[in-house]
Write a protein that binds this DNA or RNA. Structure first.
Length: 652
RNA sequence: GCCGCCCUAGCUCAGUCGGUAGAGCAUCUCACUCGUAAUGAGAAGGUCAAGAGUUCGAUUCUCUUGGGCGGCUCCA
């Protein structure tokens, strides 16, 4: 018998795994146990650090406000939070006071002491903590959601309370219902932590429940790592597409139009146009046909598709047409309701249905940049990534069951190679499956098995990292989602490929097979960028506004050293424009240094400068985004260099 | 939608313990004609988000509405 303290003397060890289970170092082990150390910088160790910091924060809050009732306090990515039920929401000044109190607790070196309790004991000790009592009740009811945040409190096989006690006297300062494990001592939290913000959050994540006040913090093994984290946050803030969109004059959301509805300025329009043109060309090469469909439709269409049942809250309210009302307000002629479309699929289906289809018509690949409108909750809106009107690069493929696997494989290859064209490189896949829950899924077991296997084979063949997530499929079929990592390591979900037998069924789609029988096609829903607005925002952040040359709104700006060289440099700019380059001459009366500054902040990839020297030699001088320069480049070479960079989608 | 915070010139922000406002940049004018990140001078620009209330008086206090930000929920 020995404790973790005896087994591991390394100060970086904060807990241990005993036969695979995380335990406090104070726990005892036997010779037959498999015991592994958990260091503070490991994923488990970080969680323990952060969860322990959450406890200290809760103790600090209750030391300041004994009336604060405890919610839950789990670790999350990069940090932790704790929820409190308090009469008055926290203010920024409160966070400072809480940090001070936390600092005292940490310096005090309180020990975390684990204690097993019965249900009755826990209820008695936590009589003043209604939310904890509710959690105890849940556990009693055999609730076994083992991976949610609540399990941090009551997820173990037995109920445990952690006491925070004085390192020397053993006096109990505070206690909390908790599964553990914890750091041995609050001092190990060190100084690599900080409170980040406070916000409201619904108790147990349901908007039907009361809102609690949540305080978020971040915690790291060292102060240096905290600083690095803060720098990463600052870098992300610098790249924020909402900020760059304003600075680079790309798009805006005029209040007069309404929230979540974007307008695209000339510069943003150029970038978006390049994205769309490139995608269009690739789609046409890939056997897709572009179609156009209207923005509004009579209700019938979305009743048939069932969207007006399952998705009604997500849709804008109807526009009533042709209704006539007399002076008393009685309806004398029935009107018709029109809806803004939240999806394009039913419209594409109607194109399919316009005439009888043969197996020879399949696969049929319809593509559209279809603008859809969704009544998103106002609080959910966020820049261009979450809006009320957006354009999906939507495709619907109609295939025979036999074609499904091949076609999905093609689609996935297509998606990946297209995203590579835009400079994204790091991908992984998520295969969403059905689970055992009854009633949630439609379609036969055979269909699910067949289509799931098809998607799995295809996904595996890409060689990309693949995660399978049971229960995440659409109710009508499995799907593959593609995620990408941007330049600063953030993950974005982009493309989705979904198999659907539901809509073909609802709309009674058919094709005539070789043997003359009528068969039902399978539909594949495919969004590549997801939403063009959102994809644009992701690229903008990925490149921090420094788009590769082909996407840059202005590719070249000519800056004459003095007015006398405007004609000379203007001629070079004209040649570039003739070659299809977006080149401009800055003939304003500013000084050249000022112009360089202006166009550098606008992130123009090539600045061409010419004065006496270059005019004499028939050359120009390059200044690049990073401030480096290359002087005396002969004009033809300069033009070739620029056009090549555009054609190659090069970053400069 | 919910909770909290916020909205002052085109932009970024000061400011007014209630007596109707200021800077820098951008814009316009003039002078300077200049070789790699801001030339100088001057001018113009604001019903302090909108509406209502309290007050002798509101940009400032209160309420309502709109918009934004951070979360929750939701999601392309």
């Amino acid at each position: 018998m020995s404790t973790g303290f005896e087994l591991f003397t390394d100060r970086n060890v904060v807990a241990m795994r005993v036969n695979g289970e995380l335990k406090d170092l104070a726990a005892t082990t036997t010779d037959t146990d498999t015991v592994e150390p958990v260091t503070i910088d490991s994923p488990d160790g970080l969680n323990i650090l952060r969860h322990s910091a959450a406890h200290v924060m809760a103790q600090a809050v209750q030391s300041i406000n004994p009336e604060a009732k405890l919610g839950i306090g789990p670790p999350v990515t990069d940090g932790f939070y704790y929820d409190f039920d308090v009469a008055e929401p926290f203010q920024p000044e409160d966070l400072k006071a809480i940090e001070k109190a936390m600092d005292r607790i940490i310096r005090q070196g309180q020990r975390f002491q684990r204690r097993v309790v019965t249900d009755a004991e826990a209820r008695a000790e936590l009589a003043d903590e209604p939310y904890k009592l509710e959690l105890i009740g849940l556990k009693g009811a055999g609730d076994s959601h083992s991976d949610d945040n609540e399990s941090v409190e009551v997820g173990g096989a037995e109920l445990t309370i952690y006491d925070n006690v004085d390192g020397k006297t053993g006096e109990v300062y505070w206690k909390d219902l908790c599964r553990g494990p914890h750091l041995p001592n609050t001092r190990m939290i060190g100084n690599g932590w900080s409170l980040v913000r406070n916000a409201a959050a619904y108790w147990r994540g349901s908007e039907k429940n009361k809102q609690l006040q949540r305080i978020y913090g971040t915690a790291w093994p060292t102060k240096d790592e905290l600083r690095e984290y803060q720098e990463r946050q600052a870098e992300a803030a610098k790249r924020d597409h909402r900020k760059l969109g304003k600075e680079l004059d790309l798009f805006s959301f005029p209040e007069e139009i309404g929230s979540g509805l974007s307008v695209w300025h000339p510069r943003g329009g150029i970038v978006r146009g390049e994205i769309e043109q490139h995608a269009r060309k690739r789609h046409q090469e890939g056997g897709y046909t572009y179609v156009y469909t209207p923005h509004i439709t009579k209700a019938d269409l979305f009743i048939t598709s069932n969207h007006l049942v399952t998705y009604k809250e997500g849709m804008f309210p109807p526009i009533r047409m042709d209704e006539e009302v007399d002076d008393e307000g009685n309806v004398t002629k029935q009107g018709v309701d029109y809806y803004l479309k939240p999806m394009n699929c039913p419209m594409h289906i109607l194109i399919y249905k316009e005439r009888g289809r043969s197996y020879r018509d399949l696969p049929m690949r319809l593509a559209e940049n279809g603008t859809v409108y969704r009544n998103e909750l106002s609080g959910a809106l966020h820049g261009l990534t979450r809006v009320r009107g957006f354009t999906q690069d939507d495709s619907h493929l109609f295939v025979t069951p036999e074609q499904l696997e091949d076609e999905v494989a093609k689609v996935l290859d297509f998606v990946i190679s297209m995203l590579r064209d835009f400079g994204l490189e790091d991908f992984e896949l998520e295969l969403s499956l059905k689970d055992d829950e009854k009633d949630k899924w439609i379609g036969s077991d055979e269909f699910w098995e067949y289509s799931t296997n098809a998607l799995r084979h295809v996904a595996q063949r890409t060689g990309l990292k693949l995660t399978e997530v049971p229960g995440e499929a659409a109710f009508y079929g499995p799907k593959i989602d593609l995620k990408t990592k941007d330049a600063i390591g953030r993950t974005w979900q982009l493309s989705t490929v979904q198999v659907d037998v539901n809509l073909p069924e609802r709309f009674e789609l058919e094709f005539t097979d070789k043997d003359g029988t009528k068969q039902r096609p399978i539909m594949i829903h495919r969004a590549l960028f997801g939403s063009i607005e959102r994809f644009f925002a992701i690229l903008l952040e990925h490149y921090a506004g420094q788009f590769p040359v082909w996407l840059s709104p202005v590719q070249v700006v000519g800056i004459p050293v003095a007015e006398a060289y405007e004609d000379y440099l203007g001629d070079v700019i004209r040649q570039l424009r003739d070659a299809g380059v977006r080149a401009e001459l800055d003939a304003s009366s500013e000084r050249m240094q000022k112009k360089i500054r202006t166009h550098t902040t606008m992130k123009v990839p090539f600045q061409l400068i010419a004065g006496e020297e270059d005019a004499k030699n028939g050359s120009v001088s390059f200044r690049f985004r990073d401030g480096t320069q290359e002087n005396g480049v002969p004009i033809p070479d300069a033009i070739a260099r620029i056009t090549t960079a555009i054609a190659d989608h090069a970053q400069v």
